[in-house]
């Protein structure tokens, strides 16, 4: 594989991890517009642990994910009291605050950025993304995932069915944050550098954008969305500076004609049925 291809695959991996971090709470109807803040939490925690305390990578990166998850649990209680647009904006503000705090934290280099001494290669990043994907595929076959969709559809009925709506929402939010933290930890160790400016509003917002582009009805939507978002600008590379113009036009046109996203439940059902049909035909 060429360096270019590997580089692209690494970016795709980071985008896939971020996509699932956004997707999980979104499948319960909660829009997290501050995912970059949780990535920053994971990135800085992991970097600090491996730099200053000489933790091995295998401990530092999961610890970064855990720190991000913990932060989410702490803020979930007040933040998830808000709903809909208020929740989206609360997470938006939270993301900004987290990033700004790291921007001012001298112990991790503040605005100058933070060098990470341990390096991890593309293989780890790709394995991380594959791990997240496998985890999400497994999770999508559980009651938990079913309940999240049920809550998104109708929280009142879900509650009357005996489901702990708030508990499920907090869990989805916190697991999403842990995934974001994992992505952040991998990011810092792969690029050997963490700077708060990277974890911007744009990062959060673009992630949400390609998750919705892929579609939130099924677990494959975010994967397809991330792949699309990574690869389409590359395909448009020939158009140079204009590629994001075409990309944006595509997004607008796409959402106007197919607002439910690329991959929908019905689409998968049709696909499965057509695959099952020939088998059923055999005696």
């Amino acid at each position: 594989m060429s360096g270019y291809q590997t580089g692209l695959l690494v970016i795709l991996s980071f985008n896939v991890i971020a996509a699932y971090a956004v997707y999980l709470p979104l499948s319960a109807g909660q829009l997290n517009l501050g995912i970059a803040g949780f990535m920053a939490m994971g990135a800085y925690t992991a970097a600090y642990l491996s730099n200053e305390l000489a933790w091995p990578l295998t401990a530092a990166i999961p610890a970064g994910a855990a720190a991000s998850c913990l932060l989410a649990l702490v803020v979930a209680v007040p933040i998830l009291r808000t709903h809909g647009i208020y929740l989206a904006l609360a997470t938006f503000a939270l993301g900004q605050v987290i990033t700004a705090v790291f921007l001012n934290l001298e112990v991790v280099g503040a605005a100058a950025g933070y060098q990470v001494t341990t390096f991890t290669g593309p293989a780890t990043v790709i394995a991380g993304a594959a791990g997240v994907l496998a985890f999400m595929l497994l999770l999508s076959r559980t009651r938990f995932a079913l309940y999240l969709t049920a809550i998104k559809s109708d929280p009142t009925v879900a509650d009357l069915m005996g489901i702990n709506v708030r508990g499920m929402q907090i869990a989805a939010f916190a697991i999403g944050a842990a995934i974001a933290g994992l992505g952040g930890g991998l990011y810092g160790h792969h690029f050997s550098f963490v700077e708060a400016q990277h974890f911007s509003v744009a990062l959060s917002v673009y992630t949400v954008l390609y998750v919705l582009l892929g579609g939130t009805q099924t677990v494959f939507g975010p994967l397809v969305g991330a792949a699309f978002f990574t690869l389409l600008p590359e395909l448009l590379r020939a158009s140079q500076g204009w590629r994001y113009v075409f990309f944006a036009l595509f997004i607008i046109g796409f959402m106007a004609t197919r607002p439910q996203g690329l991959i929908t439940a019905d689409l998968l059902r049709v696909f499965r049925r057509s695959r099952r049909a020939p088998e059923a035909a055999q005696p």
């Binding site: 009651r143 079913l146 309940y147 969709t149 049920a150 998104k152 559809s153 109708d154 009142t156 009925v157 879900a158 069915m161 005996g162 489901i163 009805q217 439940a265 059902r269």
Partner: peptide, 21 residues
């Protein structure tokens, strides 16, 4: 008020919740 994002069987599985909680 069936959950419109779910299939029939998925709705029913949600309905089983109290016995599989």
């Amino acid at each position: 008020r069936l959950m419109s994002h779910l299939t029939v069987i998925e709705n029913l599985i949600v309905g089983q919740h109290v016995r599989a909680s």
